[in-house]
Amino acid sequence: MILFQYFLMCMIFGTTFLAIKVGIDAGASPFFSAGIRFFLAGVILFIIMAWKGRATVSILLRKEMFLTGMGLTFGVFASLYWGEQYVSSGIAAVLSATAPLIILLLQSGISRQMLSTLSWAGCFIGLAGVILLLLPGVTVTFSMLWIAGCTVILFGQIFFAAGTVYSRRVAQQFQEVSPITLNAAQMMYGGAMLLVLSLITEDVHMASMLAPNALLSLFYLIIVGSMMGHSIFYWLVAKTNPVFPATWLYVSPLIALCLGAVLYHEPISFLSLLGGIAIVIGIVLINLNSLQQLWSKKRATTPADNKV
């Protein structure tokens, strides 16, 4: 179940960078569209969970939901949406792939434990794979706005890493609460913060927001990207560890490349193929201990299942 949810999450998130870019290119205001996306997704999920009897308003009054929303939603997506005005979706995916490495650094700093050589090697191999993957198709015109966009997106990954590590604590603290409810609550807070930021900094043009591509991008990101993808991510953080779910950031450029080849007949170069192989190797190395534990649990339950 964990591996299936992981692959589904990777498939979903592999399309979101392009969906964000489509909306922004259609004229949607970055902070406003991000705020609407996450606030509405959070509200809808929370209402569904409350209807099922698995969410209460009291959870919204906890400071943990505010802090998680600041990290996982507000900080990272304010940076990403703003940066994608000046940076291609492919470059944004490459820069976002630094998050697992930052998570490892945070975890090692908090726990004061040395990380295994395999984990470090996996992070660097995976990051190198992402760069190799996108290198053939990336053309960059250097400008101050391009540099600013890259810097802001990188800065946002610090929020993402901190939010991911902290959300693991929150999931353990609120074990009686569904991870989907926790995700809905943090998205509501993060979305509300993005809307406040938009109110202060943006002049929103509703005509642009109602353009077909902008609406299509928004609906897709609300339903598929946020309600489905982020709920699976939060569930995986609660069930495994903060690093394992975050490795989707290594897989998303590979998925984007495959979609481009199948849907738009884009060529796949040798460097891209080499990058894809490096990504898979990196993910395996980072999560080798987790994969061994999952395999051991599966083997331990097999004999009992055979006796039934």
Rank of each mutant, 00 (worst) to 15 (best):
I2N: 09
Y6K: 04
F7C: 12
F7M: 09
L8V: 14
M9D: 13
M11V: 12
I12Y: 05
I20L: 04
I20D: 02
G23A: 06
A28W: 10
P30H: 13
F31A: 12
A34Y: 07
F38G: 00
V43H: 01
V43W: 01
L45T: 08
L45C: 07
A50S: 14
W51Y: 09
A55H: 07
I59E: 15
K63E: 06
L67P: 01
G71N: 05
T73P: 04
A78P: 07
L80F: 06
E84R: 07
V87I: 12
S89M: 05
S89G: 03
I91F: 12
L95K: 02
L95D: 02
A97T: 02
A99S: 11
L101V: 11
I103G: 10
L104Q: 12
L106S: 05
Q107S: 14
Q107M: 15
I110T: 08
L115T: 15
S116C: 04
S116Q: 12
L118N: 15
S119Y: 02
W120T: 07
I125G: 03
I125E: 03
V130C: 09
L133E: 06
L133K: 08
L134F: 11
L134P: 02
S143P: 00
I147K: 01
G149W: 02
G149A: 11
T151E: 01
F155L: 11
Q157N: 11
I158F: 08
F159Y: 05
A161H: 07
S167F: 13
S167M: 10
V170D: 03
A171P: 00
Q172K: 08
Q173R: 14
F174R: 01
S178F: 04
S178N: 14
P179C: 12
M188E: 13
M188Q: 08
A192M: 15
M193C: 13
L195I: 07
T201V: 11
T201P: 02
S208F: 03
S208Y: 03
M209F: 13
L216E: 05
F219Y: 10
I222M: 15
I222S: 14
G229D: 14
I232S: 13
W235Q: 15
L236C: 15
L236R: 10
V237T: 08
A238T: 11
K239A: 13
K239E: 12
T240P: 08
N241V: 10
N241W: 07
P242L: 14
P245H: 14
A246D: 11
W248E: 05
L254P: 00
I255N: 04
L257W: 01
G260R: 12
A261K: 06
V262G: 14
E266F: 02
S269K: 00
F270N: 01
L271N: 02
L285N: 03
I286H: 00
N289S: 07
L294E: 11
R299G: 00
T301S: 11
A304M: 13
N306C: 02
N306T: 00
